[in-house]
Amino acid sequence: MKTVELKILCVLFFTVFASAQVPMTDFDLGKMAGKWYLVGFATNAKHFVKTYKADMKMGTAMLVPTEDGDLDLSYTHLKSDGSCFKLKNIAEKTEIPGRFVFYNKRWGNDNDMRVVDAKFDEYAIVHTIKTKEGKSEVLNKLHSRTATITDDLKEKFRQFCLDTGILEENIAILTKNGEC
């Protein structure tokens, strides 16, 4: 009896994990356009908690659709020394709406990015699989149209992160910060 229960549990786990990686069915590239605040960040990268989590603060993202249907991604955040960190990539569309791929020159990794949930005038949850030298890591981001989010949205993001295999201590709701 326990073997059957274990098999059912495994099937349910893999179904939830697989569905969490599927882009949303009603993705609208035009509605992703504009300014977003990066308010949540979570990863299964081993170095995250020790190296980055304590110092991370909210940043902004400008998402601009290109004529070809790709997505111009520009991220900035104000560092503690007053300088600006900037990161820019062009995420190329795939045959699946809401799924994009790009190579990040700064970090030297391939990125498979999927918009998995969004209410475009409020929030977007983005799930990215980053691969470098044959090793993959998961990165989830919570984007919001405002710098303040509800407790319900925080919980939604937290649960999504747990469902995609990220430990609780690797989930960060970022504190407000000045803008670049």
Rank of each mutant, 00 (worst) to 15 (best):
K156P: 00
G40Y: 05
A33M: 03
T146G: 07
F13P: 05
T148N: 10
M32S: 11
E5Q: 12
G82S: 13
F102R: 04
L153N: 07
I8S: 07
R145N: 10
D121W: 09
L153W: 15
I125L: 15
K57W: 02
Y75W: 06
D152L: 03
V39Q: 04
F17K: 05
V49S: 10
T131I: 08
D81R: 07
C180A: 06
P97L: 14
V116H: 02
P97C: 12
K53Q: 15
D121T: 15
M32Q: 12
E5K: 10
K119R: 11
M58I: 14
K79V: 09
D163N: 08
V39I: 13
T3P: 00
A118E: 07
H77Y: 10
K88E: 14
Y52H: 11
V126S: 08
A33Q: 05
H143T: 10
L174Y: 05
T3K: 15
K88G: 09
G69C: 09
I8D: 11
N177P: 00
Y123T: 10
S83G: 08
L139M: 13
V126E: 10
V49G: 01
K57D: 03
Y103M: 04
V64N: 13
S83P: 01
E122T: 15
D55T: 10
K46G: 14
D152K: 09
T66D: 02
K93T: 01
D72F: 00
G98T: 11
T3N: 13
I8K: 09
I96P: 09
V138C: 12
D112L: 00
K46T: 08
H143V: 12
L162K: 13
E95F: 03
H47K: 13
E67V: 14
Q159H: 03
F157V: 00
F48D: 14
F48K: 13
E133H: 08
K88V: 13
E155W: 08
N170V: 04
D72R: 06
G82W: 12
E169V: 09
D117C: 08
F14V: 15
M56Q: 04
V116R: 02
F27N: 08
K141F: 01
L167I: 06
G40K: 07
K132S: 14
G30V: 06
I129Y: 09
D68Y: 11
T25I: 07
S83K: 05
V11R: 06
K46M: 07
N140W: 07
K50D: 13
D110S: 15
N89H: 11
V4Y: 11
K135P: 02
T175I: 12
N109V: 02
H143P: 06
S80H: 13
K35L: 15
L78Q: 13
L6R: 15
A33Y: 00
F120R: 02
G40D: 12
N140I: 10
K119S: 10
